[in-house]
Amino acid sequence: MSERAHPGGDHRGHHPPSARPLHGELTRKPVRVVAAAFGIITSLVACDVPPDLIPEDGPVVLGAAPADGEGDADREGPFRVFFDRRLFPRDVNRGRVSLESGTRGSFLALRFDPVDRVLLVSPQAQLDPATRYRLTLEGLRDLEGRAMASRTVITFETGEDAVGEPPPEAPTWADVAPLFAGCASEGCHVGPAPALGLDLSSGEAVARTAIGVPAVQTRVGARDRVWYGASSLDGLARIDVVAGQGQPARSYLLYKALGDPHAAGERMPPSPDPALDARSLRRLADWILAGAPTG
């Protein structure tokens, strides 16, 4: 992978396939497009939209699980909302996402997955059984700074089960080291003076130069012949880990691996090496989520 400077982003993407958007007050009959939406999103993992084809409106909800109007939802979640694009990381907070029954709100843990473009909503206490809930999303922005056109409300009813789901299996450094091999080569991110100070040649080097270290390609403008990326990714760490918990949506190297046009320079790994496939991107994101273990 390479965080090398380049006068422009990687625009390998394709225009997203059409999908029936779910927006506004979703109080009509259930819209069961979750499987289709998930297929659309995963097919777009390495296909970002070129800037000249990005729609002018904000993020669009493609579907949800449970779907609007659905019953028998697990009381522990997580509940998923699928989007047509990646969200601005700092917008994923309880000021813009809420879960309520009547006038009573639930305390939530929120996580956006930039690989599958899905928002995961997890209540911090079990929801009541056989109860109707409203999941409301409002004002979420994309990486261009465009907000959702309108508030989205997804209603569902809980069942009796409170099973939840286990966290994804945590990849080890041995699992992800091959993903960095294309960038940990001579003249790139290796050696006593690696490009931009990022050394990807070993777990120890990644821990020292990437985990918790601010990315240097995330400021608009030119300085010392280094081109800086979109301000929507400004201030992100190369790999963000807080108290042992990784945050893929706030990790700049993941956007580089995705070839997101809002990250500066070439994708990681750079051509002529092939882009990471969907399985490799999933492994990288899950490794970060697990705290990016390097031992």
Rank of each mutant, 00 (worst) to 15 (best):
P248E: 10
G77W: 01
R225A: 15
F82E: 05
I239A: 03
D234P: 00
D116I: 12
D128A: 15
S2D: 10
L108S: 04
L253E: 08
P51C: 00
D224I: 04
G105Q: 11
S101G: 09
G13R: 06
G77K: 00
V216Y: 02
P270G: 10
L236R: 00
A67W: 10
S185G: 09
G24D: 02
W227M: 13
L110H: 01
P293A: 08
G63H: 00
M1V: 14
D273V: 09
D74W: 02
A278C: 03
S18P: 07
V190W: 07
G221I: 07
P55R: 07
E3Y: 12
G235R: 04
I40E: 14
P59T: 06
S106E: 15
S280C: 06
D128H: 11
N93A: 13
L284V: 04
R151L: 10
P16R: 12
V206G: 06
R20M: 11
A249E: 14
V97C: 03
L135C: 10
L135M: 09
D128R: 14
V34E: 12
L137C: 03
V216E: 14
A177E: 15
A285N: 00
R208N: 09
R146E: 05
E3P: 05
A215T: 09
L233D: 10
L289R: 15
P272Q: 03
H15S: 13
L120P: 02
V31N: 11
T136V: 12
R85C: 14
A290L: 06
A237M: 15
C183E: 13
G95A: 09
A125P: 00
A67Q: 05
L62K: 05
F112H: 10
P21M: 04
Q245G: 00
E25W: 05
D68L: 02
A275G: 11
L53S: 11
L200W: 05
F82K: 01
Q217F: 09
F82T: 02
S98D: 03
S231M: 06
T158H: 02
L99P: 06
I40Q: 15
G105Y: 05
A177F: 02
W173R: 12
G182H: 06
L233P: 09
G139F: 10
L233Y: 04
A222C: 06
L233N: 08
T152S: 13
H15M: 11
L200C: 08
W227K: 04
R32M: 13
F180R: 01
G246W: 11
D224M: 11
S122K: 14
P50E: 04
A292W: 02
R279K: 14
P30S: 07
L276M: 14
G58K: 05
C47S: 15
A174V: 10
D116L: 14
A149S: 15
T152L: 05
N93E: 12
A193M: 08
T294K: 08
E266A: 14
L143G: 05
D273W: 12
P66V: 03
D224V: 10
T27M: 08
S106D: 04
A109V: 07
A147D: 07
P168C: 07
E56K: 11
P269E: 10
G24P: 06
G187W: 05
P171E: 01
D286C: 09
D48L: 07
D84R: 03
S101Y: 01
W287T: 04
